[in-house]
Design a protein around this nucleic acid. Structure first.
Lengths: 339, 339
DNA sequence: CTGTTAGCGCGTTCAC
DNA sequence: GTGAACGCGCTAACAG
């Protein structure tokens, strides 16, 4: 391994001078810099991060924490996409990205502790937002830099987070259905404990209220993500005396399940029932019909969180902030004028 | 930050003793160990990896390298799934996982160099296999531990890699179609430069030959992954004077495109055309009809590669090996007896 | 502008 | 069984 000393010897300067050249210290003469850089190149010098980190107390690395049920979570195209966003800025800033997951909550907490205490990383991105998350508690207690994708359970103003305006998105996409003549609109969401669900649901309700449309409790269903959930939800909906003509689904993956169950039941989409969805994951343009869905800009969610985090790790005094990533509605074939 | 010295002071022993306790050195008396461990606990000691790595020359970290077109690649559910597999053993062995990607080939090569030279990681997993990969060349030249998922371009015996028996899988799944009475069977694969495609195609051809079925060149189509490719392929197939009654598709994602295009064209699956696919990504049970597909055990692909890599990093003298992960055929609804 | 010195936190001799 | 001393590769004062 070529060290700073080797380069120093080769150039006839001291190790610290070489170090300064690496840091591009302005007080080093251009000549020396030139000379040293040539030698580094020639010898194939590369700085050893561990030596650097040991003294510099900064790792230029950040960690991404997966939800505990990494099992199911990673099935959602959402994650690769956030990772892609995070990766892009990580790469651009010459940082490293450490991925961390665990089967249980306890495991992931331990992982996080290991990373924090061992100073593996300068900061953490939480790829999920849970109620009463011990990881958050730990991070807060240690005052360790982190940002969260989604909405914090509490202390909204104290935790830097990156989110969409899910209320507005929910409202707007519901309005789309209303504008197309639909009056009996159902809502299928994930767990009530998730803020995404809550916010989108509130938006949905607001849209109904604004349009003076009645709100049937039977039309709001909370279920698990993925097919099973989607199927159950649809079955419930179809068994109702008065079927909805439009459905708002909070996740493309769920929509997939909804779609297939609908088709199995001989219900045409959008002929009999119109569907709008969320996320605009690649799936949504592949289904038949392609989904009208809210593009929440997952990539940006990742990129912004990485930016915010790096900012914070560089300057710890930067106050926490909330970043709202704009959404766009992508109109495709799953909605039809009613009747 | 609590260091080894603090613990030493607290316990009244020397730093080296503490160090030995951490390493669980057998020559330390149980009493001292007990005492020291209590102090570590009490003080909240955690070893600083950078200091450790600096002297130990091992990082207990491995890196996963994404394909250069991380853009598209991450859209395939394949990746999250391998990552999940890798993550599980990483976690189990208390290693860390660093994710690395880049837009261009050049960028990813630079990333790899940075990781290798800066001794960020003990080894690397290549999540893709490309022809004439400069990354492989670099790694070989430096004799840096790595394993590849898929099949190496050359030097098969010198590169540790984890793969499926794609030839047999291709043959067997084609045989399934044949056994169900199909004789006009088409093949839709990805780029010819990919070994996955080649191997599966060879298997397909072998099955045809074994059954004395004629092989039409028009029935073999190479195209890009994802919808566009799938659509084009299907369009070509449908325009043929004699349409196939069965199709072998090498990727579930492609199958999705194939399916939808078929439906758009009013062709029933499996009524008119039967479909078999590869990967058994969650998608395949969601589509309508659900896909009969080869489960290549992506998770295992990841887990095994991580195991093999860690083994190699621990003992560099371990000879390269090829690991074949078994596949299973999952029978679902996309195949029907012909006629 | 540049060299010298002194650690960063830990593991590893080599003594005792 | 345990301590003292040294060095891993690098950066950061302090000199000059």
């Amino acid at each position: 391994m070529v060290t700073i000393k080797d380069v120093a010897k080769e150039t006839g300067v001291s190790p610290s001078t070489v170090s300064r050249v690496i840091a591009d210290n302005p007080r080093i003469s251009p000549d020396t810099k030139q000379k040293v850089r040539e030698a580094m190149e020639r010898l194939g010098y590369h700085t050893n991060i561990h030596a650097r980190n040991l003294v510099a107390k900064s790792t230029k690395a950040i960690g991404a924490i997966m939800p505990s049920s990494a099992n199911k979570a990673l099935q959602n195209p959402f994650f690769p996409e956030v990772l892609r966003g995070i990766g892009s800025v990580i790469h651009e800033r010459q940082y490293s990205l450490t991925l961390s997951s665990g089967e249980t909550e306890q495991e992931i907490l331990e992982e996080v502790q290991r990373m924090v205490f061992g100073s593996y990383v300068d900061g953490l991105i939480l790829l999920y937002s849970r109620v009463e998350d011990p990881v958050v508690a730990f991070l807060e207690e240690r005052d360790f830099p982190y940002v969260m994708i989604g909405k914090p359970f509490d202390r909204l103003e104290e935790i830097t987070h990156v989110d969409n305006d899910n209320f507005m998105a929910g409202k707007q996409i519901t309005n789309h259905l209303i504008a197309r003549g639909h009056e009996k609109i159902a809502f299928i969401g994930g767990s009530k404990d998730l803020f995404v669900t809550r916010d989108r649901e509130s938006g949905y309700l607001a849209a109904l209220a604004d349009a003076d449309l009645p709100h049937h409790e039977d039309y709001v269903i909370h279920t698990e993500f993925l097919k099973s959930g989607g199927k159950e939800a649809v079955e419930q909906l179809l068994s109702l005396p008065i079927r909805p003509t439009g459905i708002v689904v909070t996740d493309d993956l769920m929509s997939l399940g909804v779609l297939s169950t609908l088709e199995e039941s001989g219900v045409q989409v959008p002929g009999d029932i119109s569907l709008v969805s969320f996320n605009n994951v690649y799936l949504s343009e592949i289904t038949r019909p392609a989904l009208t869905t809210v593009d929440i800009n997952i990539y940006e969610l990742g990129a912004q969180s990485a930016r915010a985090l790096i900012e914070r790790t560089v300057d710890k005094t930067i106050p926490p902030k909330r970043i709202i990533v704009p959404y766009t509605i992508i109109y495709r074939g799953s909605v039809k004028e009613y009747p």
